[in-house]
């Protein structure tokens, strides 16, 4: 057993890995929330439910339609994104000009319906989803055993985050998006179809949630409550990071996952609450959030 200063390195690295994986999911979800918030100025309360829907999409696809993991990784986010576009067009758009608290409540209602339906259909106990054949192995590193699938989650989700960051910060499409965040009326005056961009942005944001759901299916059990639990944590992360910066949302998500993992090793009793405690600390010292720009 490798120990330094009484620290069991195997256990510590194990929890760090779990933390990085959780952090990858936090980053993906916080990113989606931040993108949607940027343009629509709403907090998407159904984000967790759509993440859950992504996991169920993978599960149902495999068991009923014969869609394997790799196809699910492509098809499910598109399907969830399409559902998001439908929701935006039919429900969220009509109240876009009302107080934003209403859209929060509306998306909360959507979350209740989705979670309620899936609880009724599948019960609240979780369902297993097998790790795809190609990623079943693992690598032995000096201080730990790294299962391939876990490495895949971290690499893949961080790549998705990086690509999204690049598109938003460095491309022309991203420039439209950022301009829409600053001043939608002016952009419309320049002849850009703002409502279309809004719809697509919402679809893309929730598509990311669906993608996170598919990624999560093999590591967490697929259950109707998986979404609401993670969403509240992601809200705290969004408060910590502030939603003004895309990169900030990604970094904060990942960092909080690591903090949670370390807490699991050093003081397991606080592992469920540590992120909320960090939020309290941030509120006390830097109320606008670590990357916040609001006045």
């Amino acid at each position: 057993m490798a120990t330094i200063f009484g620290i069991n390195l195997f256990a510590l690295f194990g929890q760090l890995l779990v933390g990085l994986i959780n952090g990858s999911f936090y980053a993906l979800l916080a990113l989606g929330l931040a993108i949607i918030f940027g343009l629509l100025k709403i907090i998407n309360f159904s984000h967790g439910a759509l993440y859950m829907l992504g996991a169920f999409g993978a599960y149902l696809g495999l068991n009923y339609l014969g869609i394997d993991y790799w196809w699910a990784l492509v098809l499910v986010p598109i399907a969830v994104g399409a559902l998001g576009i439908l929701l935006e067009r039919t429900l969220i758009r009509p109240i876009a000009n009302e107080d934003h608290l209403y859209s929060l409540l509306l998306t909360f209602g959507i979350a209740l319906i989705l979670q309620g339906l899936f609880t009724h259909w599948f019960g609240s106990s979780g369902m297993p989803y097998a790790i795809p054949e190609e990623l079943k192995g693992g690598t032995r590193l000096p201080f730990m055993y790294l299962p391939d699938y876990r490495a895949w989650i971290i690499v893949f989700s961080l790549s998705v985050c990086a690509v999204t960051w690049y598109i938003i910060e460095k491309t022309k499409l991203g420039a439209y998006l950022r301009a829409g965040t600053e001043n939608p009326q002016l952009m419309q005056a320049f002849g850009i179809n703002v409502p279309l961009i809004v719809t697509l942005t919402y679809g893309f944001g929730v598509g990311l949630a669906g993608l996170a759901g598919v990624l999560a299916a093999p590591v967490y059990s697929v259950s109707p409550e998986m979404g609401s639990n993670i969403l509240i944590v992601v809200f705290a992360i969004v408060v910590i990071g502030g939603m003004g910066s895309i990169g900030g949302a990604i970094l904060t998500g990942l960092a909080m996952g690591v903090v949670e993992g370390l807490t699991k090793y050093f003081y397991p009793e606080a592992s469920t609450t540590v992120i909320f405690l960090v939020m309290v600390l941030v509120l006390l010292t830097k109320p606008a959030g670590l990357f916040g720009k609001e006045a």
Binding site: P94, E98, L105, L106, G109, L112, I113, Q115, G116, T119
Partner: peptide, 20 residues
């Protein structure tokens, strides 16, 4: 009985859309 959450979700949406 099993649809209580669903029904409440529907009431939520109806309230917000038509009955603010």
């Amino acid at each position: 009985a099993n649809y209580i959450h669903v029904v409440m979700g529907v009431v939520f949406i109806l309230c917000v859309l038509t009955f603010r």
